[in-house]
């Protein structure tokens, strides 16, 4: 079995508002193996980014994190102090952000910002640090790398800045990289290059990668496993093939039916969309999280009937077709019925 890099069990994030509580993330569990890419997909506001910040313990001060288990390489980092956590950040877990234009400090050179990470975690300074920085910049495809060291972020293009960010993140060779929509702010050609680069570097260094995105095209290109998030919960999780070929949750089906397929869309036909909005996550939920969103036309995925096997101790959680990796979770009876799946109650 592959070595597990990260394991989070039952993570919840609550944000107290005046008089009420925003349940941004509600009991999610994910794990990532060495060399594996886990994509977390979902609409805006479903809690993807907060989840990534929660792993780094970088949530906004107001947010309250509760989690049963948070393990890095089998070692619990749950009760780490801020000082211990800062030894982990940038060293064992690296993070790449969405906005390359604003994620680098405008007042310092590329060299300064790269080397400070090395100095902090590896105690490498001076020329040897500079050499490592140049090597890493070359690895992310910046050639010649040397003149770039003396430049400031505002002198670099968006694609170059994101490459610098990636190089900076890889300097200490982290065991886990969390990339929060790393390609959203870039144009399509640069997007493809950056994804290619991430994939290559990940296999070179054998790191675990959590990629947060709302772009299913990106998911198809890079993911090993996919977790579909909706309203603070993971509704379905499985390998990229299972999710794309065998989606069981009506929400996953809805998402997939929104992807326009060239040649299959008739002229004048509307592109697919899921109607409505993510429900407000403030206060307690009384009704179904998907209320008002199921007017979507039946897609081709609805024709296929999957068998759901209930998972012990959980009312609406099922394993799809008996595989242990493909899990689907419904919020209520109504959604379960909508999934049009056969439920095998006999096997436990």
């Amino acid at each position: 079995m592959a070595e597990q890099v990260l394991n989070i069990t039952n993570l919840s994030i609550d944000i107290p508002l005046s008089g009420d509580v925003l349940h941004a993330v509600d009991g999610i569990s994910v794990s990532v193996n060495k060399g594996e890419t886990l994509c977390i997909v979902g609409e805006s506001g479903c809690g993807k980014s907060l989840t990534s910040l929660a792993i780094m313990d970088l949530l906004p001060q107001k947010a309250i994190r509760t989690v049963d288990k948070l393990e890095l390489n089998g070692k619990s980092i749950l009760n780490y102090s801020d000082r211990e956590m800062s030894d982990v950040r940038g060293n064992k877990i690296g993070m790449i952000f969405q906005e390359p234009m604003t994620s680098l400090n405008p007042s310092f050179t590329v060299e300064n910002q790269m080397i400070e990470t090395l100095t902090r975690h590896r105690n490498i300074t001076g020329n040897s640090a500079k050499k490592l920085a140049v090597e890493m910049l070359e690895k992310v495809g910046i050639t010649p790398a040397k003149p770039r060291l003396k430049q400031y972020p505002h002198q670099l293009s968006g694609g170059l800045r994101q490459r610098v960010m990636i190089a900076m993140t890889l300097l200490c060779q982290p065991e886990l990289i969390i990339a929060d929509e790393p390609t959203t702010a870039l144009d399509v050609t640069i997007q493809a290059q950056i994804l290619e680069l991430l994939k290559r570097l990940q296999s070179d260094f054998n790191t675990g990668l959590i990629l947060i995105t709302h772009d299913l095209g990106v998911v198809a290109k890079i993911a090993d496993r996919v977790a579909v998030m909706y309203a603070g919960q993971i509704v379905e999780e499985g390998s990229v093939y299972e999710i794309f070929d065998d989606p069981s949750h009506p929400y996953t089906k809805g998402l997939l039916s929104c992807i326009p397929v060239p040649g299959k869309i008739k002229k004048g036909e509307r592109l697919g969309s899921i109607p409505g909005m993510v429900p407000s996550l403030i206060g307690k939920f009384s009704e179904c999280r998907f209320a008002g969103r199921w007017t979507v036309e039946p897609s081709k995925h609805d024709e296929k009937i999957t068998t759901l096997i209930p998972i012990k101790g959980s009312k609406y959680e099922f394993s799809v077709d008996g595989t242990t990796n493909h899990i689907v979770r419904f919020c209520c009876k109504h959604c379960l019925e909508r999934s049009k799946s056969k439920i095998n109650k006999g096997v436990n």
């Binding site: 970088l58 800062s86 982990v88 950040r89 690296g94 993070m95 952000f97 680098l104 990470t117 902090r120």
Partner: peptide, 11 residues
């Protein structure tokens, strides 16, 4: 964002 980056670097 760059302060968040600095924190994420473990500084």
């Amino acid at each position: 964002d760059y302060i968040r980056t600095a924190r994420a670097k473990g500084l």
